[in-house]
Computed example of a mutant assay.
Amino acid sequence: MNNEIHTVKSFDFLARSFAHMHSQGRGLNIRAVTGNMSKEQQNWFQERYTHYCEQGICASLLEIEHSYR
């Protein structure tokens, strides 16, 4: 159980890090990142990655909006 929690935290950190890289315009291949993961891990990772990408997009839009005020 403890190992499972550690794995989840590591995957979440990776998802957040790769989403941050994506927001900076760095090219990355998510399939290569998730290639050795189980299907369950791939799905979970992709959900978190998408979540963080959407957060980054929203944050960027808010920054743009506030810069025009």
Rank of each mutant, 00 (worst) to 15 (best):
S38I: 00
V8Q: 12
E54V: 03
F18E: 13
N36Y: 06
Y52A: 02
S17W: 11
W44N: 10
Q46V: 13
A15W: 03
G35F: 02
E4N: 14
N2C: 04
C53K: 11
A19H: 03
I57F: 07
L61A: 08
N2Q: 12
R16G: 02
V8K: 13
Y49T: 03
S17K: 14
I57W: 10
H51V: 05
C53A: 02
E65G: 00
Y49R: 00
G56E: 01
F45L: 06
R31W: 04
N43T: 12
R31C: 08
Y68F: 15
R48C: 08
I57V: 12
K39G: 05
V8L: 13
N43S: 14
T50Q: 15
A15P: 04
R16A: 07
A15T: 01
C53Y: 00
A59W: 01
S38V: 02
N3R: 14
A15K: 01
E65A: 11
S23T: 12
H6G: 01
M37K: 06
E40N: 07
Y49H: 03
L28A: 01
T50M: 10
M1Q: 13
G27Y: 09
E54P: 06
C58D: 11
K39Y: 07
E47N: 12
V33S: 01
H51D: 08
N36A: 08
Q42G: 06
N36I: 08
M1T: 08
M1W: 08
M37H: 10
G35P: 05
G27D: 11
T34G: 00
E63R: 14
N29P: 01
G25D: 04
S60R: 15
V8E: 08
A15E: 02
H20L: 11
H22P: 03
Q46A: 09
C58F: 13
T50I: 05
K39C: 05
R69W: 09
N2Y: 09
Q41K: 10
F13M: 12
N3S: 11
V8P: 02
H20Q: 12
R16E: 14
C53P: 05
H6Q: 12
Q42R: 14
L14E: 12
N3Q: 15
E65P: 00
E54M: 13
A32Y: 01
Y68E: 05
F11M: 15
G27P: 04
K39E: 15
M37T: 06
E47I: 06
L62N: 12
Q24T: 06
M37G: 06
R48E: 10
S17Y: 15
S67N: 08
C53I: 06
R69D: 10
S38Q: 00
Q55K: 09
N3W: 07
E65S: 09
S67E: 11
C58P: 00
G27R: 04
E65R: 12
S23Q: 10
H51S: 02
H20M: 10
L61Q: 14
E63A: 08
E4T: 15
T34R: 00
L61C: 10
Y49M: 04
L28Y: 00
Q41S: 05
C58V: 15
F45I: 03
D12C: 10
Q42V: 04
L14C: 10
S60Y: 12
E65N: 07
Y52V: 03
E40F: 12
N36F: 06
